[in-house]
């Protein structure tokens, strides 16, 4: 029997979808190990959240609800995870491989003297040991990783958007357990500047439409944004487009941008350099729109149209509108 503890991320009192994915994964692992599923959440004024987590199978929810935890601090939130782990004694600890999840999981792992099965795209348990698979060398290879039998605690960070989030057939008890971690907070968030309302972040999006140098200039973004709007997609950019100053770095996909795994990735005027593929190669379906039939992006693509994006993209927007009608 081994307990599974999942770190839950909230922003403004809203639980992040990636955390529900990790919780769903934790639930299936806890069933395989005949263990109990626990969750831990930190913040201020978050007492209503545990009930949401029971639907995903959480039997216990450890809640660190303190004014000092209103905004994120890696030290404060790690202390919350650590206190929950001490109370719950899990053998498996999960956090989504997000900016916050990685901060907390890695600090916690170091405190307990273990490594992390980081950014895994597959995760299972065999004989009580976690086994996972993750891309390495910018997605040019993949590695099977496992936690050693001697490790008392196993920490893994599943990649967002890869594992499904689904409610458990039978909800967990969702018993809320207040925890009061000792806090030593030195580095802390003092402010969060959210992206413009209605904008979906590429790191969390289920669909992405990306523009590269082929869009010629920032005046073309509205053409891509119209398609984003119809598909419910986030707007991505290649490094060439970002470096040209056409859009902010938060939109960049690739080696030195965000690594994404949407179900649909539409690359418009992107050549498909290896460093771009490093960021989106694990997308489920890739569409390439490029006027050069030799562009490497076609080697990675599921569907391709060799043509002028200024004609094809607006036609796709129209077709998407018609399909919805």
């Amino acid at each position: 029997m081994s307990n599974v503890l999942v770190f839950i991320e909230q922003r403004d009192g809203k639980i992040r979808k990636s955390s529900l994915e990790a919780l769903t994964l934790g639930h299936s692992l806890s069933k395989k190990t005949n263990g109990t599923l626990g969750a831990v959440i930190a913040g201020a004024g978050i007492s209503s959240l545990p009930s949401e987590l029971s639907a995903y199978g959480a039997a216990k929810v450890f809640v660190a609800d303190k004014p000092e935890l209103q905004l994120f601090s890696s030290e404060g939130y790690t202390a919350a995870l650590d206190a929950a782990a001490t109370a719950f004694n899990p053998t498996i600890v999960l956090a989504s491989a997000t900016a916050m999840g990685l901060d907390v999981a890695a600090r916690f792992a170091a405190r307990r003297g273990v490594g992390v099965l980081s950014d895994v795209m597959a995760l299972d348990v065999e004989n009580g040991r976690l086994v996972g698979s993750r891309p390495v060398y910018s997605g040019k290879a993949r590695v099977a990783v496992t936690a050693s039998p001697s490790a008392a605690i196993q920490v893994a960070t599943p990649r967002p958007n890869v594992f499904p989030a689904s409610k458990a057939a039978a909800p967990g008890a969702g018993e809320a357990v207040a925890i009061d971690p000792a806090l030593k907070i030195r580095g802390k968030v003092v402010k969060i500047e959210a992206a413009a309302a209605g904008e979906i972040d590429v790191a969390e999006a289920d669909k992405i439409v990306t523009g590269g140098r082929g869009i010629k200039g920032p005046e073309s973004w509205p053409i891509l944004k119209a398609l984003c709007h119809e598909l419910g997609a986030a707007l991505g950019a290649s490094r060439a487009a970002v470096d040209a100053g056409w859009i902010g770095h938060e939109h960049q996909v690739g080696q030195t941008g965000k690594v994404v795994s949407p179900s649909l990735y539409v690359a418009c005027g992107v050549s498909g350099a290896i460093q771009h593929l490093a960021g989106m190669g694990s997308s489920k379906v890739i569409v390439a729109i490029n006027k050069d039939p030799e562009a490497p992006i076609f080697k990675a693509a599921t569907y391709g149209i060799v043509g002028d994006l200024f004609q094809i993209v607006p036609a796709m927007t129209e077709a998407a509108k018609k399909m919805k009608a």
Partner: peptide, 24 residues
Amino acid sequence: DAASVRWTKLDLPPARQAVKLIPA
């Protein structure tokens, strides 16, 4: 043997299926 997380196998990702091109 004391490493708590280990690589057990490194391989190349399966090749993607050939692209389906749509005439434009």
